[in-house]
């Protein structure tokens, strides 16, 4: 594949043709905050947390291919303030009660909230308190914690060759739909499916392992989100 360089946060970095700005930045050890992106999946472009400035204009880093004419800024005060607002909106769109959530400490949403200094959600909640579906022997889905990142939808299709998840409705009423009317237990979802463990939040979670690693010893308890990418730089 052809190589080229572009300017990322003031320095020249290398990229491969076909890479998105986000992928190229990852390769260069620059972490662009993201939520719906997952390295094993096609990008979805849903959360808009990865928005960056390309030659002064807004662009979505996970879906925009990098190009040699680009001057990209990823880490400005303005962009981080936007990211904080987006995360805050996700907290009021759902119902995220971190202190009792299995995912606390491993949750990408929570980790981003810490990263951007969100304290308490300030806006009225939009949550409709959907019921939890625990009909599957090994996995449950709690849509209160779903951020509609679509990762489960894509993982099931792209990685597992199934179509267990989909979207239902539109706008603020959008929710994750299942390939069965009788709950998660009646779908083809398997415990070892990529879709079963790809959720960034505590929405789609494996049963009985939620507290194997205690609070305090989890991924983002040790290092803030993104440090695994930034470390590569050294």
């Amino acid at each position: 594949m052809k190589k080229f360089t572009f300017v990322l946060n003031g320095r020249d970095v290398e990229a491969l043709e076909g890479q998105s700005i986000l992928e190229a930045a990852d390769g260069a050890g620059v972490y662009i905050p993201r939520l719906c992106y997952h390295k094993d999946l096609l990008p979805g472009g849903h959360c808009r947390v990865c928005s960056v400035k390309v030659n002064g204009k807004v662009a979505n880093a996970c879906t925009m291919p990098a190009a040699d004419w680009m001057v990209v800024d990823t880490d400005t005060e303005e962009l981080n303030e936007y990211r904080r607002l987006i995360i805050e909106l996700l907290f009021v769109e759902g119902n995220h009660f971190c202190p009792i959530c299995e995912k606390s400490g491993d949750c990408e949403l929570q980790a981003l909230a810490y990263k951007f200094g969100m304290t308490a959600p300030l806006w009225p909640t939009l949550s409709k308190n959907p019921p939890v579906d625990a009909s599957h022997p090994d996995v449950f889905i709690d849509r209160n914690r779903c951020v509609l990142c679509g990762r489960c939808v894509r993982a099931s299709r792209e990685r597992d060759g199934k179509s267990v998840f989909g979207l239902e409705g539109r706008g603020i009423r959008t929710r994750i739909a299942l390939d069965s009317l009788d709950g998660l237990g009646m779908t083809a979802l398997g415990r070892n499916d990529a879709a079963a463990t790809i959720c960034p939040t505590g929405s789609l979670v494996l049963k009985r392992v939620g507290f194997t690693t205690p609070y305090g010893a989890r991924a983002y308890d040790k290092a803030p989100i993104g440090s695994e990418i930034e470390k590569k730089e050294e």
Binding site: L90, V92, W123, P124, L126, R170, G171, I172
Partner: peptide, 22 residues
Amino acid sequence: FREESCGSCVPCRALTGMAQVV
């Protein structure tokens, strides 16, 4: 706009919902 947002992007989905309430 709340009725017509497709719901795919977070800012559009959440804020068309929120704008109405506020």
